[in-house]
Computed example of a mutant assay.
Amino acid sequence: MAPLKVGFVGTGIFASDFHLPALQAIPEHFTPYSATNRTKSKAEKFAEKAKIDGSKVYDTIEELVKDDQVDFIDALVPVQHNYQVIKTAVDAGKPIIIEKPLAASLEDAKKIVELDKSTKVPILIAEQWVYFKAIELIKERLTKIGDVVSFTHKAIQQWNPNSPFLQTKWRQNPEHIGGFLSDGGVHQIALLTEVLGNIESVSANTRQLRDISGDDDILFSSVKLASGAIGTYTYSTVFANNKPESSLIIYGTNGSIYLDYTDKDHITIDTYVGETTSTNPQHIEFKEDLFSEGIQYEFENLYEAITSNDKSILKATPAKSFHHYAFFVAAIESSKDGGGAVKVAQL
């Protein structure tokens, strides 16, 4: 089968530095074909890098989707435009992958979910953490530790004032609820919910440390899952000089599981089984880069759905992404109300 021809909508940093290399790494499946951007000169520069013919640089998405040769859309736009971009693609019968978080509001997020339910056109949300190898590895071991009682999930990353993502205006002045918290934090919530199930409620405190964030950028929370398990979730990328830590610890009635994914080159899972102290956990370790490899997983998943005409095999669906985003909407509401418990919106 010939490679699928990709139409890029939005040609900024993430399109150029992450999505394009991921697609070019799988030339038997994908060919960069066309592009559009609000600033056409940026699309033209991107086209040169992607080896896209200049005649396939369009002024608008409406023009791009009319091109019968475009097999699917890769959209990387400010979150507040997600719904309209998805609708434009679906109305033209074009499968689409679009960056997270799902929308700028729960209202728009629900509209995307309803649109997805109403069409056979594949809609994939670019939440690559649902493909994290650790998810299946942990789920295989959950029964060994009995009923899950509690968990601690922490993602504290080193502050990087030189991050190119800090320079994007729509992130500095976010229209989507949660700002940097929901933009980055949906990844950890995807990991948590893929392993332990949906979240029922959250009690949270948030605050803003960095002016450039445009909104709150620190989150400490207490979480209750639909299963009844309770735990904590902490997330920030803005603390000054610190020891980064990314971990998920799950406590069961017959043991515990420790995932440490701080270092992508040395990810570990230790499983302790039994009610008494054990110094010999079941230990596994592996490497995985959820930027480069994870993005390739997304595109391979979309390729399979398109070529098999079966959108049911998509892993990062709008419905899943809705729940991840709804968690942050509830967390921000909780913080504004003094940290009381707030129910997470369900579909």
Results as ranks from 00 to 15, higher is better:
3 P>Y: 02
5 K>P: 07
7 G>W: 00
7 G>A: 07
8 F>I: 09
12 G>W: 08
20 L>M: 06
27 P>V: 05
31 T>D: 08
32 P>F: 07
35 A>S: 10
39 T>D: 06
40 K>G: 00
41 S>F: 12
42 K>P: 01
50 A>Q: 08
52 I>P: 10
54 G>F: 11
61 I>P: 01
63 E>I: 11
64 L>I: 14
65 V>G: 01
65 V>K: 01
66 K>I: 12
74 D>I: 01
75 A>L: 11
77 V>E: 12
79 V>S: 03
79 V>L: 09
82 N>F: 02
83 Y>V: 00
87 K>C: 04
90 V>F: 02
91 D>L: 13
91 D>M: 11
92 A>Y: 12
94 K>L: 07
95 P>A: 02
96 I>W: 08
98 I>L: 13
102 L>M: 13
103 A>C: 12
106 L>M: 15
107 E>L: 13
109 A>E: 13
110 K>Y: 05
110 K>W: 07
113 V>M: 06
115 L>G: 03
116 D>L: 02
119 T>I: 07
119 T>R: 01
120 K>A: 13
125 I>K: 08
128 Q>Y: 10
129 W>D: 07
131 Y>G: 01
132 F>P: 00
134 A>F: 08
137 L>H: 02
140 E>P: 01
141 R>Y: 00
150 S>C: 08
151 F>E: 03
154 K>S: 08
154 K>Q: 11
154 K>P: 00
168 T>G: 00
171 R>H: 15
172 Q>I: 11
175 E>I: 12
181 L>G: 03
187 H>R: 10
191 L>T: 14
191 L>F: 10
196 L>Y: 12
198 N>D: 15
205 N>Y: 09
205 N>C: 00
207 R>K: 12
208 Q>F: 02
210 R>W: 04
212 I>E: 09
214 G>T: 07
216 D>C: 11
216 D>P: 03
222 S>G: 13
228 G>I: 12
230 I>F: 09
232 T>D: 05
233 Y>P: 03
234 T>P: 00
239 F>S: 02
241 N>V: 15
243 K>Y: 09
245 E>I: 15
245 E>G: 10
246 S>V: 14
247 S>K: 13
249 I>N: 14
249 I>S: 13
251 Y>C: 03
257 I>Q: 04
264 K>A: 05
266 H>P: 00
268 T>V: 15
268 T>Y: 10
269 I>P: 02
274 G>C: 07
274 G>L: 06
276 T>A: 07
282 Q>A: 09
283 H>R: 13
289 D>F: 11
294 G>V: 01
297 Y>D: 11
298 E>F: 03
299 F>Y: 15
299 F>A: 01
301 N>T: 03
301 N>L: 02
303 Y>P: 01
305 A>D: 09
307 T>K: 15
307 T>A: 10
309 N>I: 03
310 D>W: 08
312 S>T: 15
316 A>C: 14
317 T>Q: 08
317 T>G: 10
318 P>F: 04
319 A>E: 15
319 A>Y: 09
321 S>F: 08
323 H>N: 13
324 H>G: 00
324 H>M: 06
324 H>I: 01
326 A>W: 08
328 F>E: 06
333 E>H: 12
334 S>V: 11
334 S>D: 04
336 K>F: 02
344 V>K: 05
344 V>Y: 09
345 A>T: 13
347 L>K: 12
347 L>W: 14
